[in-house]
Amino acid sequence: MTPLEKVQEKFGKDIVETHAFRGDETAVIRPASLLAVAKFLKDTPELDFNYLMDLTAVDYLFFAGGRIQKEFRFEVVCHFYSIKHNHRLRLKVQVDDREAPDGRKHPEVDSLTSLWASADWYEREVWDMYGIRFKGHPNLKRILMYEEFVGHALRKDYPFDKRQPLIGPQN
C-alpha cells in the first residue's frame, strides 16, 4: 500500500484530487485539513515521514499564458520524505487571495512549524516571495529580501526587473 493510498483511505473526503505524474505521488487536499493530514503522515509508523524536505508555493496567475484557467491562484507544495521507509509524498493545498477569510488581503494556510522545525524558514520564504501567511508561525517575517521591499517578488504580477534599491539610482 503506497503512502498515497493510505492518505486516500483515511482522508478520502478531504482530498480534492490525486495524481502520480512520472511516479511522483501527489495529493491535493483542502486547506482546512492540512494540519491533520500532516500529523497523520508524521505520526503513523507505517508512513513515518520524518522529513519535510521542501515547502514552497506556485503562483498560477495567467497559467500557460491564460489558456488554462485555474479557479485558485496559489498552491502551497510540500515534499515529504521518510528515511526509514525511503518513500516520498507531495502534498498540495490550493489557496486564493480573493477568497481569503475575514476579508484579509493575504491568503492564509496553517503552519507546519509545530511538527517539523524545517518548516520555519521555508514558510518565511514563502511569505517573503508570495505573500502567503501561515497561521501559527512564530516569527513570520521576510527572509531573503529586506524589510523595505514592497510586494512579493515571485508573484507572477511582479515584474522581474522592477528594482527597489536602498541606495543608488532608481534604475
Binding site: 529580501m145 517578488a153 515584474p159 522581474f160 526587473d161 522592477k162 528594482r163 527597489q164 534599491p165
Partner: peptide
C-alpha cells in the same frame, strides 16, 4: 542577473 534584486 538583470532582475529585481541585483545592483546593475
Amino acid at each position: 542577473y538583470d532582475n529585481y534584486s541585483t545592483v546593475q
